[in-house]
Design a protein around this nucleic acid. Structure first.
Lengths: 337, 337
DNA sequence: TTGAAAGCGCTAACAA
DNA sequence: TTGTTAGCGCTTTCAA
């Protein structure tokens, strides 16, 4: 039984309208409607205009599923965030939002939509069906990466570039970040530096590497106490422990602003002055650090740019074009500490 | 021409396998495969098991578009974030991530996927085709809400509940947040309070309302200087200006932790002690505030819970069930300020 | 408990 | 420049 649609040109909101219906209303075929709505040059400009206006007037809603089925693509990119539901997230701070902003901006303007997902409880079919995947935060363990790779989709990872020659990774220049921190300490005449961070984490390991190399050229070897976590309290704890055993340090480079702030707190509690007795540098240049008292010197990375880059690379992979890992620049923002 | 697939039971990764193929391999019909994979009770348990194992072994990938086309739903919820690409975001702080976490968690376990999007440059068809929409941050202007409403999809908004009787809104109890702040000031014996925030913003207006009412019961009327923005520097600026004109206040309630921190900075720069001379309360209970020196007293809201609730309500609407606006509790976290 | 038929709405390929 | 045909892969009738 055919619907009485075409006989009723003014349709109510919520009515369901297809290209075939529009075709009938316009006195053309469905494929012409399809072409017109996609701005195909194959269709007469006037016809095209007429059809587009008709569609607009009739409140036509394009059916994405039908197109995707036909084209065998989902026009979708899954963004996998390592986001624990607990308070202490793996991805500390607000930066994932900037990353997401950049990604979303770029993918949207390319006509792709962003499927946000974590890896909790196995991925949905719709996620696995994405045309490409962006993995945010490989974390300390790289299970996430292996799991996602199994989906067999084009994939780009945000993280430590050096670790994965086989993967396309976008990351910022962590090694240079470490070097910049070292150079500042050297310029300030500091000779007993500490690195605070967990080098099981690829990005942190790179920061330590750059730090250590730059110091090594001056015959200096930093202390590297272990830290349990990436939180303020973990930073404070680690520094308290450190002060008990090696009270002699005069500079501290933390792998995140959170850790740095914890460290400063512990230092002050133990009567050390910042920056007079101990110079401190953080990482990520978060508002948290920038507004802290004393304002925290930190290594800046541009997450929005990073997001855009990640998006461009998945898109390239999806289109079958080549893409390579890329390292974004970092710079040091000098503040009071 | 039929594909030679069924004659080759071990298939390579990347090969394309349909239910019909599985059916042939299993010696059943496609519909039986469909039922088996959906755990339909209509299919013999043994057959079901056999088919599921076969699918697993063959690396079968379910085609979401086909199902969606057939079912006329997208199994997708669009989350619209008012997220400017600029540094100063509308949604301040890291909280949207928690909200997203809660939303994602709940929708995913219901089999829906999360389409993340901003409103930049008009929405994609796939976004408009979502089965439901969650709007995060109605902002000061409510254009976003009106625009999204035009899509004609079930919609739930995160924001100020009182403003929109016609919409389903989830928000936290901003009015009570304001009341709690007022009560703390009263208990501390403060008599000259200030509210710092822009009441064009619905949520802020509610906070001011609660604050003002509780104070009014004691015959006290707060000062309400205008603030240009939701940033640290805007907070500092506003307080500097305030000190010039009305230097006599002894308590300050800010509509966000960021503003509060800016305020504290300005106070200290002008020789006021916090909390001795001026008691300060922030909003959102961010790590930023909690780790500030002095640690900031703040009103806490649970964003993860809020996200879960938002998700449940769109799901209800999508299923045609009733749903109502809801207000989440807030509480005060007392710290040094 | 299983299957056959039909069709969701769109677009590539080919034809006119 | 426009149209016809066919089919993407799935699931809801309805029938056996």
């Amino acid at each position: 039984m055919s619907r009485p649609r075409a006989s009723n040109p003014t349709r109510k909101a919520g009515e369901h309208l297809t290209m075939a219906d529009l075709a009938e209303l316009a006195g053309v075929s469905a494929i012409t409607v399809s072409r017109a709505l996609r701005d195909s040059p194959l269709v007469n400009p006037e016809t095209r205009q007429r059809i587009k206006e008709l569609a607009e007037r009739q409140g036509y809603q394009f059916n994405v599923s039908a197109r995707n089925l036909r084209l065998r693509r989902s026009m979708t990119v899954a963004v996998v965030v390592e986001m624990k539901p607990t308070v202490e997230r793996q991805m500390s701070g607000p930066y994932p939002l900037d990353l997401l902003g950049g990604i979303s901006q770029e993918l949207t303007s390319a006509g792709y939509s962003v499927l946000l997902t974590s890896l909790q409880g196995g991925a949905l079919p719709s996620v696995q069906a994405a045309d490409g995947v962006i993995l945010l935060g490989q974390g300390a363990h790289e299970d996430a990466m292996h799991q996602v790779r199994r989906w067999g989709r084009p994939m780009v990872v945000w993280g430590a570039v050096s670790r994965h020659e086989s993967q396309i990774v976008v990351g910022s220049d962590n090694q240079r970040g470490g070097k910049l921190a070292a150079e500042r300490f050297l310029a300030l005449g500091r000779r007993r530096p500490v690195f605070l961070g967990d080098d099981a984490h690829g990005e942190f390991a790179e920061r330590l590497l750059g730090f250590r190399q730059a110091l090594g050229a001056h015959g200096i070897e930093p202390l590297t106490p272990s830290v349990a976590n990436f939180t303020v309290s973990a930073g404070a704890q680690a520094v308290h422990a450190l002060l008990d055993q090696h009270p002699q340090f005069d500079a501290l480079f933390a792998a995140s602003d959170l850790l740095a702030i914890g460290a400063i707190r512990a230092l002050i509690e133990r009567g050390r002055r910042v920056p007079e007795d101990v110079s401190v540098i953080g990482y990520d240049d978060t508002p948290l650090g920038a507004t802290y008292l004393p304002p925290l010197t930190s290594i800046h990375q541009n997450f929005v740019d990073a997001g855009v880059l990640l998006a461009r690379k998945v898109l390239a992979l999806i289109e079958g074009e080549p893409a390579a890992s890329e390292i974004l620049p970092t710079h040091l923002v000098a503040r009071v500490t």
